[in-house]
Each structure stands twice: as C-alpha cells, then as structure tokens.
C-alpha cells in the first residue's frame, strides 16, 4: 500500500494515539459505562488501520503484522475461554463469575469481578481480529499465498 500526503500523515499521527487511548478506555470501563470489549476493540483496531492507511506499508511488514495480529487474536480467544473455564472449574458453571457476584460499582475500576478481564480478552480478540481482517482484505494478493 502507498502512503498518503504529509497532511494526512500528521493528522493521523495525532489522532491514532487518542483513538487507541479512547478504545482502551472503553474496553476497561465496559462494566461501568456503555461499551465494552467489542466496541473498544473496534476503536483500537481503527487506530492501527488509520496508521497503516496513512503511512502505507510494504509486503514484508504487512505479512509480519498479519501473523502477529492473528496470533494475538488467538491469544485473546484462548484467554476468554480460560476465564469462562475458571467459573466452570472454581465454582460450578461455565461462565460463572468466579471472583465475585454482582455488577460493577460506579467510579470503581476494580469491581464486577471477572467482567473486566473478560472485556479485556474480548477487546484483544476483536482489535487484533479486525486488524487482521483489514490486512487480509487489503493484502490478499500475497497473504493468501501461504
């Protein structure tokens, strides 16, 4: 992919950090405010997509990003299944909130038991997954070869 003009690049560099921060915020506060792992993960992926559109990339970096993001995506999935299994093993039921029952307490980040780590796992999976989808669509001409 070719990069875009310096104007776009400067603005994208300013925005990407904010987008990433905002995405992380949405992921982390999923149990307190609207949003959660999926919505935040999409924002995080958008930050990466913005950067790669603005600055462009060459084949080998795209390949590496694709490999890395698919690995991270799988790790997010494994993490989520492990969290769900924790409820199965530690208490009784799959997906049971193993740490504490109850919803989040407003303004307290560490509350709601397993909802926060589960949201983080979903955020990782969605963020990396969407970015991998973007790379696969944009770069299918060489990614599909292996």
């Amino acid at each position: 992919m070719r990069g875009m003009s310096p104007v776009v690049q400067v603005i994208a560099r300013l925005l990407a950090g904010l987008l990433f921060l905002f995405g992380t915020y949405i992921v982390m506060h999923g149990h307190l405010t609207p949003g959660g792992g999926f919505a935040g993960g999409v924002l995080v992926a958008a930050a990466f997509i913005l950067m790669s559109l603005a600055f462009g990339s060459v084949e080998h970096t795209e390949r590496n990003s694709y490999t890395l993001s698919s690995v991270v995506e799988s790790l997010g999935g494994v993490l989520f299944v492990c969290l769900a299994l924790a409820g199965y093993v530690a208490v009784a039921y799959f997906f049971q909130n193993a740490a504490t029952y109850g919803t989040g307490t407003p303004l307290k980040l560490i509350s709601g038991g397993m909802i926060l780590p589960a949201n983080i796992a979903i955020g990782i999976k969605v963020g990396a997954g969407l970015f991998a989808v973007f790379l696969a669509l944009g770069a299918s001409r060489f990614v599909m070869k292996d």
């Binding site: 698919s70 690995v71 799988s74 790790l75 999935g77 494994v78 299944v81 769900a84 299994l85 199965y88 799959f94």
Partner: peptide, 16 residues
C-alpha cells in the same frame, strides 16, 4: 457444556 468448550478452545489453540 464441554461439547462446546473443547472444540472452541481448540479452534483458538490450533493456530497458535
């Protein structure tokens, strides 16, 4: 639930 958990977990573990 193991009928769902086992293949789901392995679907993520196989790529890794």
């Amino acid at each position: 639930p193991l009928f769902v958990i086992i293949p789901l977990a392995s679907a993520f573990l196989i790529p890794l």
